[in-house]
Design a protein around this nucleic acid. Structure first.
Length: 585
RNA sequence: UGGGGCGUCGUCAAGCGGUAAGACACAAGACUUUGGAUCUUGCAUUCCCAGGUUCGAAUCCUGGCGCCCCAGCCA
């Protein structure tokens, strides 16, 4: 990861960098770091720290993978070590290049660099085959002719031991011959497998003569038709780690039961032997994380695709406007432990706001426009008002915003009958327009039939212009606005949690997680108005729309038609109050 | 009922025998031309439960209880 102290330039009219340099290094500690520190102290690995991120290219990466990526790349970097990007491509029937490309893009976007260490399990197929031959020669592996069903039956159950395969005691010569012929393609899919000879009575099912190779006549995205036998995960993974000289092989909890097998293979072979360490995978409330469920959301069109801004995929968060920095900080804050947990989505949003607040340029945009006419403001006059680009960063400078007689404000900022605690605009009340004047609502024009508020007639106090002597008069609220004739029309896509309840899998009998999909997770507003300084906004640019939230220019956006995604709202005390008031009724 | 893990604030999470960090969330207040940001304060007499060891236990021992994972030729 590169680090830099230079301040990115966030002037609206200049290029916005998509990513921002990482801040201070993480300081949090966890049990894996302790293991590494101890190993460094005892010089167990000759002072090396070598990790790897080993995705299977059978789907898109999600925020759970981000935790693993940050753990593997981040921890290695912290101890002066290296982390490999390795594709675990041992199952040609499920894997595709589309996925390897997206995975590389996502890891890079998160800010990590595998340098020249891009590896594929398939690069080791020949070596793995030789190791398998070695095990056969040692009498620790055999070719089994049982069918898949039979193998299942022979395996026994959680409480009963399994039975040994009738093929278990074939001679080394016969096994060698059969295994070679498996490789040559003499047998159809499923006809035979190569199995390790361990212990059919082991209480750990993984040790009941596990399968090392299966016959799969399928084209592999990298090796083509070179192979028709493919190694299983358990057989392959430790070998991959061993070949690459991994020191700490970090994986998730469900592989804890596999560690004895990982160790057994490496011990039998007498080769370099990394240490496998397991940690709890990330769960987030209000979303789902399993590849299977994510795939269903895409295939059944509940979302527009893998990069739908509501998806917990890395590309989804990217499109939504999340920053790599915020995800890295999040990964650090959630910690690493062995207990199952569900992290509050609010923490991720907190990390996002914390980052964006520092540098996102402020602009004004009105989502649901309400026309305001300043009756006592000169008809043809236009003032260019000074606006601060970012109060958190004086270096971000100022910009001009045009002000005129006809404006738009937010519909939410006006109430004909203001509820308790509402101190925005209402009939007879005063409010400040940001960077402009204090205005007073004089009258309300409504649609005769529907009663809908069409426009507001106001007057302004010319003595109260921002920055002037009379500007210090206190009013309860400051509203954002745009000049009607200068504003640019834009589409804004509003997002909420994809699911309506914290645990999407909490469903009544007979339904599934899709029953908890939030019908309001996407709302498209077509006639929003944004200030003219946004005319040159390009996809991926991020802004804070004052008082509303952070927004990101979407990939669909064009010069003619701007499209924004709401990345995250600002914290909103009033919304909270209002919600509480409603709940109390 | 076999094996492997795990149980500390609403949610994450430190703690490694010396008397419960921190973060998010929440609540109250200050400040504020973003009801944003910032600041201040509050928020586990108690660590799944019950015994025991000890001057002293969240940490050690014993016994319970609860949750997660494992019976793919997936990873």
């Amino acid at each position: 990861m590169k680090s830099s102290n230079s301040n990115p330039d966030h002037d609206q009219n200049k290029e916005q960098k998509e990513t921002h340099p990482p801040g201070a290094p993480a300081l949090s500690s966890h049990f894996i770091k302790e293991i590494i520190q101890e190993d460094l102290r005892t010089n167990k690995w000759g002072g090396r720290v070598q990790t790897r991120f080993p995705p299977e290219p059978n789907g898109y990466l999600h925020i759970g993978h981000a935790k693993s990526i940050c753990l593997n790349f981040g921890t290695a970097a912290e101890f002066g070590g290296k982390c490999n990007l390795r594709f675990d491509d041992t199952n040609p029937s499920k894997e595709e290049v589309e996925y390897v490309d997206s995975i590389k893009e996502d890891v890079r976007w998160l800010g990590f660099d595998w340098e020249d260490r891009l590896f594929f399990a398939s690069d080791y197929f020949e070596q793995m085959y030789e190791y398998a031959v070695q095990l056969v020669k040692q009498g620790r592996a055999f070719v089994c002719d049982l069918s898949a069903d039979e193998i299942t039956q022979y395996r026994g159950t959680l409480t009963e031991p399994g039975k040994e395969s009738p093929y278990r005691n074939r001679s080394v010569e016969e096994n060698l011959d059969l295994f070679e012929r498996m490789r040559k393609g003499e047998f159809p899919n499923g006809a035979r497998v190569l199995r390790a000879k361990i212990d059919m009575a082991s209480p750990n099912l993984n040790l009941r003569d596990p399968i090392m190779y299966r016959i799969v006549h399928a084209e592999h995205h990298r090796t083509g038709n070179q192979w028709c036998i493919y190694p299983t995960y358990d057989w392959a993974h430790g070998l991959e780690d061993s070949i690459e000289g991994i020191t700490h092989s970090i994986c998730t909890l469900e592989f804890e039961d596999h560690r004895p097998l990982y160790d057994w293979y490496l011990d039998q072979l007498g080769v370099y032997h990394p240490r496998q360490i397991e940690f709890a995978r990330l769960n987030l409330n209000y979303t789902v994380m399993s590849k299977r469920k994510l795939l269903r959301l895409v295939q059944e069109k509940y979302v527009s695709g893998w990069d739908d801004p509501r998806m917990p995929t890395i590309c989804g968060f990217r499109r939504r406007g999340y920053t790599p920095e915020s995800i890295r900080v999040f990964a650090d804050k959630i910690g690493v432990a062995k207990r199952d947990s569900v992290v509050d989505f609010a923490l991720l949003e907190h990390c996002l706001r914390e980052d964006l607040n520092k540098w996102a340029p402020r602009v004004m945009g009105v989502l649901r426009p309400l026309k305001v006419i300043i009756d006592n403001y000169p008809e043809d006059s236009v003032e260019e008002l000074e606006a601060v680009n970012n109060p958190e960063d004086p270096a971000a400078g100022m910009r001009k915003v045009p002000f005129s007689r006809e404006l738009y404000i937010e519909q939410d900022d006006f109430r004909e009958e203001p509820p308790k605690g509402f101190f925005r605009l209402s009939p007879g009340k005063e409010v400040r327009l940001r960077y402009a004047y204090i205005i007073k609502c004089e009258s309300v024009v409504k649609d005769e039939k529907t009663g809908e508020v069409k426009e507001l007639h106001c007057t302004y106090d010319s003595e109260t212009k921002s920055g002037s002597a009379g500007a210090d008069r206190k009013v309860k609220a400051t509203l954002h606005w745009v000049s009607a004739s200068h504003a640019i029309e834009a589409e804004v896509r509003l997002y909420e949690h994809l699911f309506i309840i914290p645990d999407p899998d909490d469903v009544p009998e007979g339904t599934d997680f899709t029953a908890n999909l939030n019908p309001k997770s996407l709302e498209v507003l077509k006639s929003c108005r944004v200030e003219p300084s946004l005319a040159d906004a390009k996809p991926k640019d991020r802004y804070q729309f004052e008082r509303l939230g952070y927004f990101c220019v979407d990939l669909d956006s064009t010069k003619e038609k701007l499209v924004f995604n709401r990345t995250v709202t600002l914290r909103d005390e009033w919304a909270k109050m209002e919600k509480k008031q409603k709940e109390n009724k």
